[in-house]
Each structure stands twice: as C-alpha cells, then as structure tokens.
Design a protein around this nucleic acid. Structure first.
Length: 644
RNA sequence: GCCGAGAUAGCUCAGGGGUAGAGCAUCCCGCUCGUAACGGGAAGGUCGUGGGUUCAAUUCCCAUUCUCGGCUCCA
C-alpha cells in the first residue's frame, strides 16, 4: 500500500507505506538529503527515521528552518549530556531543551566544584563524541521500564519527570553510551554537529521553583559549520561592544551610584540632551495628534492606589508607604500615572462630544524591582514613561488604536528601527473569569485591535492568555541592528480603571456612560528606550539626537581664535558641540573626537582661516574636503532637523 | 528575593600574609603640529564596607553593600 505525501510546493507523491523521512528527502534531491535534519509531518516535527504510515503533508527541515535548528540544538543538549556523563560519572540530569539561541542542560554535579573553566574540557569531549556520528535512536519504553532505568541510575529528577508521564507515551533516545528520557525529535546522528561552544554556567532551580534544589545550567550553542559558529561569536562580541552599560559610561550618558541606590539612574549632561531630544520629538508629535500634556506629582495618597487596585495587587511588593509627621497620612511613590490621570478626567463632567480626551505625561514612576533583576537602564527602579491615557467611547476604540499605531510607527521609523512586529495579546478563552469587563466589550476590543493592526499593515501574532486582566493589548517588538528583539511600545485597552474610578460621560441619549481607557507608551520608558537605542546604533546617534554634534579642531594654537569664532557661530545656530583647543596634535584631537563618536569634526588651520572655510570630517568616514563655513552651517541645519 | 562569581587609582586591569603596580585619563614643562595616540615629569589608592584569625590582612575566614551571569517576578 502506498501513502500520499504532499510537499510544500504543492506536489503530491506516492511512497510505500512506512516510508521514512530520510527516504523522502533522498527522493527529492541528494543535496536535500545531505542537509536534512528532521521532518515536519502534518505540522509535527519528527525524526527522519520514523516511518510514515498515513497520507500526510510534510516538509523536510534543514538548518534554515526554525524546527530544524531547534531539533539540532536539542540533539546537541543530548551530546552535552553524553560528554558530561563521560567526564563526571554519576552526574544527574534535569532537563535539556533547545532555546532561541542554542540549548542548555540542567545538571546536578553533586558537591563537585564546577565553573566556567571546566567548559573547555566538556566542549572538547563533545566534539570528540560528535565525530563518532552516533545515531540518535528512538525507542518506546513502558513506564515501569523507564522508572527502573533511572532508579537504577539514581537520577531522581528523571524519575520525577516520569511519574508525571502517561504509560505508553514514553520514549527513550539513545546515542553512543547515553540514554535519555526524551520525546524527541532528534537529528539523524551526532556527526552533523561540527561546531560547539559552551557559553556559560548559571544556577537554575529544578522546575523553576525556588523551593527546589538549584541545579547548574550549562548553556551552549552548536552549528553545522565552524564558520557559522565564528559568525555567531562575532555577533556576541559586537553585542558586548554595544552594551549600553559600557557605552553609557564611555560616552558619559548616565551613571549609577551606590549612595543614591541601586536601579536609580543618574542622567549625566550628555545623556540628558539625548533624553530631552527624544521627549521634545514625541511631545511635538503628540500635540499634533491631539494630546493634552499634563503634569502630576511623584507621590499620591495611598487611597488613590487602593481605588485603582494597584495597592491590593502590588502594595506588599512595592516601595513601602511614606508616613508624614501627622498621624494617619500615607503616601505612595507613584508606580503608575493612570490613577492621577483618571482624577484629571474627573475634574469636570464630560460629554460624549468631548471624547476622546488624551492626557499625556512624561511621568516618572517608581517600582520596587527585585534586586537580582536590575540591569543597566533596561530594568530600573525609577523610570520615566512616555505615558498617555486616552479616554474614549467604546465606538472610538478602533480609530484611537489606529492613531496610536501611527504614532508608534512614527517613533520607530524616526529612530531607525525598520524591523518590528506586534503581538496581539488576547484573553484566555478557557478562563474568562480571570478578566474584568463585559464579554461583548472584550470581544469587540479584541477584534478591533486586530483590525486596527491589519489596517496599518502590521505583522502580528495573536497570543491567547497574554492579555492584562483589565483588557487586551498590542505590544510592539523591534529588532535591532544585531537582530535581537526588544519589547518597546505598548497599547492597552482598560475597562477596569474607568469602573473603579467611576468615570463617566454623558452620551447623546442624555444618559451616563462609562468611557474606555487606552494606556499607551510608544517608547515604553525613556530609560529602556535609550538603552535599546544605544545598542541599536552602537552609540552613533543620529545627528538630531547626538549630545555633541560637532567638534571644532584647530590644527595648532595659532588657529584657536578662528576656531573659537567658528564655534561661536555654531552655538548661535543652536548646534551642540565642543571646541578642542588643547595643546595637542591634530591626529590626537581627531582620534579623541572619533572615540567620542561625534558625528562631525571641523578642522581649521592656515588654509581655512584664509578662506573662511572649515575642513569637514565625518565620524567613521574620514575627510570630506573643505567648504565655506556659512555653506556648512546651512547644510548642517537641514541635516540635523528632527524627523516629524 | 534565590544560587554562583566578582569588587585593587577617574577608566581598563595585573599582583598577592610583611602596609601596592602598569597602560590610558588628570596636572605641569617642552614641541606649534594638516585627518585615529608628540616627548618628558608630577600627582593620584583606608585594595567596596564592617568584623574576625594572625606578631602582621589588600591577600585567609565571616557578615554586609554593590556589580555581573542565571533563576523567579514584572502594574
């Protein structure tokens, strides 16, 4: 009997029943068979060696497929385990999955001291074992048999896992001398793994539960070609160079002080310019889009947050209330701007004609993040949101959403983030009780968010169960220059706060109605955004943002007067920059300006003085030749205008 | 918060039971210079903080703070 196999190109071929993925691959082309790692059968990734008994649509997976990569890395985790077992007899294993970039294995090495120094030896062992081209073979085992195997081995983690599995659906995979509980799939043999790098070791709780024992998690990555590993390591190195914590220090953008407190960034003068430029840019765009700027205090009465519900949900895990000398007064550091904005909404009765009301504030909020979670500017305890709340009628949600999407995209485009996607976060349909708000409003809002995203041509993924408890949301992810994804802006629909604050408007029917609230922040937080921007452009900010746009460099002290004249002329035009009149050689001055990543250098010497010119040098590009100073200023002013 | 590693000059880092060292930055002197580091000199450190062991601690031990790598969490 034959089975009909349909291929991704739409063609259908017949094969004898029980045909293997590897045979299908060979029948398509020998080249494909050589690089085939796994096969997707009706959407499920499987081993190439597993027989196919029924009609199916299949796709041969290679390194270029996501499923191929994850299979490859999962198999690499097994190879790591095999190497560990060879080098550390008696080692116990937790889990070893593939992750976005590589794989890890959680292991219990007992009391043995173990650190990153040990990784090289394991790596060598892995390479040695890989060369053997051991086959990953799958075998069904009964629960009892599986239990017996790991009990005998003394691996209590595996036996715990087996306890939770159903008899009849348990499989082992074996390669070389290593056997693991695993549902697969795997690549055909270890020989595909040509390049191995173990990256780091970290603690990880067994099953992610802090009550459990902490295992050692060994992270690694592998590739089918040595060259690909080298490229990957190069990207890692590049990422290190671009680390915003490093550049933030070098370029004097921000700093932290133990005395001020962890997670509380200090913005230095140059960083402040950057930040304020971003603020001004968005402020302008928001005024154009019909937002009203507001300002609210950094603290608020505890009762404000009791009303909003934040106190109940986060109060205990937050900065503790501030007490005044007078009894009974309690204030909280503002963790959110929305309660304040709700109170602004309530300062006067609102008509349906007034809506939407859009209140915007660069509001600094304070949240008690766990100490281990703090990280540069991306995770801090005090940060400024480019926050705004749109109070609108239910029938305006979609239109407002579209407007917000436009604003977010303007921000991304203006800052050079060309690659972005969006996640539509929906309710968990199985568990509607978790959420607040009427069913029909949710359904409508979820539909309208999706429609709004589609109308603007956004590439979206919908994820169920990811909504906030108060409403569905749209989260934006950007890819930076190194291909890393960051979550930035967010737009969220909220039914809860209008209800809690009893917000109302009078409708055309002369009845009171409840507005819908939209929270939105295109940057997310200024701190996080600046961090991402630094890493995206490696500290080479676009001209309109650069803290120092120009360095004026006299060739020698003899030309300092002219240099000062040039510098003053630039200042008059609001051009930011420095005058380097140090007693140094021009090569040195250029080098320093290049290191500081200043976009333009104006070099002035004998020739320039005589002709009222400046010799222009661009950062990273070198000498651009001389032009008249006036001419340069004219061009520069056009070039440094903020986008809009 | 939890596990692990670390903290030495403004920065990057070396050293190690007998009260510290380099390069860069800083300051001074000389040079007056044409597109990525001019030469010489000086100054600069309670070796994160607090305890303990020791004749002696920056070094060993304990605690603590902060930083880093993860885990967990994230309005």
């Amino acid at each position: 009997m034959n089975v009909k196999i349909s291929l991704p190109d739409g063609s259908v071929r017949e094969y004898p029943q029980g045909v293997k993925g590897s045979e299908i691959a060979s029948s398509i082309s020998e080249g494909l068979a050589r690089v085939a790692l796994a096969i997707e059968v009706n959407g499920e990734v499987r081993d190439l060696a597993r027989p196919i008994d029924q009609d199916a649509s299949v796709k041969i997976l290679t390194w270029n497929d996501k499923g191929g990569k994850s299979t490859f890395w999962h198999s690499s985790a097994h190879l790591l385990a095999e190497a560990l077992e060879a080098l550390y007899p008696g080692v116990k294993f937790g889990i070893g999955p593939a992750i976005d970039n590589g794989f890890y294995y959680d292991v219990d090495l007992g009391d043995r001291p173990f650190g990153e120094e040990d990784l090289a030896a394991i790596e060598a062992k892995m390479k040695e074992l890989a060369k053997k081209e051991n086959i990953y073979s799958r075998r069904d085992v009964s629960k009892a048999e599986a239990m017996e195997f790991f009990t005998k081995k003394g691996d209590e983690y595996k036996t715990e896992l087996i306890t939770d599995l159903k008899d009849g659906s348990i499989t082992f995979y074996e390669q070389g001398n290593f056997t693991d509980l695993c549902k697969g799939p795997h690549i055909p043999n270890t020989g595909f793994i040509k390049a191995v790098k173990l990256l780091n070791v970290a603690g990880a709780y067994w099953r992610g539960n802090e009550k459990n024992k902490m295992l050692k998690r060994i992270y690694g990555i592998t590739f089918p070609k040595q060259k690909e590993l080298e490229e990957y390591l190069h990207v890692l190195e590049e990422a290190k160079k671009r680390d915003h914590r490093k550049l933030g220090k070098e370029l004097e953008l921000f700093a932290f002080s133990e005395k001020v407190g962890m997670g509380l960034p200090l913005w230095l003068p140059k960083g402040t310019i950057l930040r304020e430029r971003l603020e001004q840019f968005l402020r302008k765009a928001q005024v154009r889009a019909g937002y009203d700027p507001v300002v609210t205090p950094h603290i608020g009465s505890k009762s404000l947050y009791v009303t909003s519900g934040h106190y109940e949900k986060y109060g205990k895990d937050s900065f503790q209330p501030i007490h005044t000398p007078d009894e009974g007064e309690e204030f909280l550091l503002k963790p959110m701007n929305c309660p304040h904005h709700c109170e602004i909404y309530k300062t006067k009765p609102r008509s349906y004609r007034d809506l939407p009301v859009r209140l915007a504030e660069f509001g600094t909020v304070y949240r008690y993040e766990q100490s281990g979670e703090l990280h540069g500017l991306t995770r801090v305890r005090g940060f400024t949101q480019d926050d705004a709340h749109i109070f609108c009628r239910p029938d305006q949600v979609k239109e407002e959403f579209i407007k917000v999407i436009d604003l977010v995209l303007l921000v991304f485009r203006s800052l050079g983030f060309e690659n972005y996607t969006a996640q539509v976060s929906l309710r968990d349909p199985e568990n509607k009780v978790k959420y607040i708000g009427e069913d029909h409003l949710w359904e409508r809002a979820e539909r309208e968010i999706q429609e709004a995203a589609d109308e603007r041509g956004l590439q979206t993924v919908a994820v169920q169960g990811e909504a906030a408890f108060y409403g569905p949301k749209l989260d934006f992810m950007v890819k930076d220059a190194l291909g890393r994804s960051w979550q930035l802006g967010t737009i969220q629909v909220d039914y809860q706060l209008p209800q809690r604050f009893e917000l109302e408007y009078v409708g055309s029917d002369n009845q009171k109605h409840r507005p819908v609230m939209i929270h939105r922040a295109p940057f997310g937080s200024l701190e996080r955004f600046v961090a991402v921007l630094i890493e995206h452009c490696a500290g080479n900010f676009p001209l309109w943002l650069a803290p120092d746009q120009i360095a004026v460099l006299p060739i020698s002290e003899r030309f300092n007067d002219y240099a000062k004249l040039v510098y003053d002329k630039l200042k008059e035009q609001d051009i930011r920059g420095i005058l380097d009149d140090r007693d140094e050689k021009i090569g040195r001055k250029i080098r320093d300006a290049e290191t500081k990543k200043i976009p333009y250098m104006l070099i002035v010497g004998e020739k320039e003085v005589a002709e009222e010119k400046v010799a222009v040098r661009k950062h990273g590009q070198g000498d651009q030749g001389s032009v008249l100073l006036e001419e340069f200023i004219g061009k520069f002013r056009t070039e440094c205008a903020a986008p809009n």
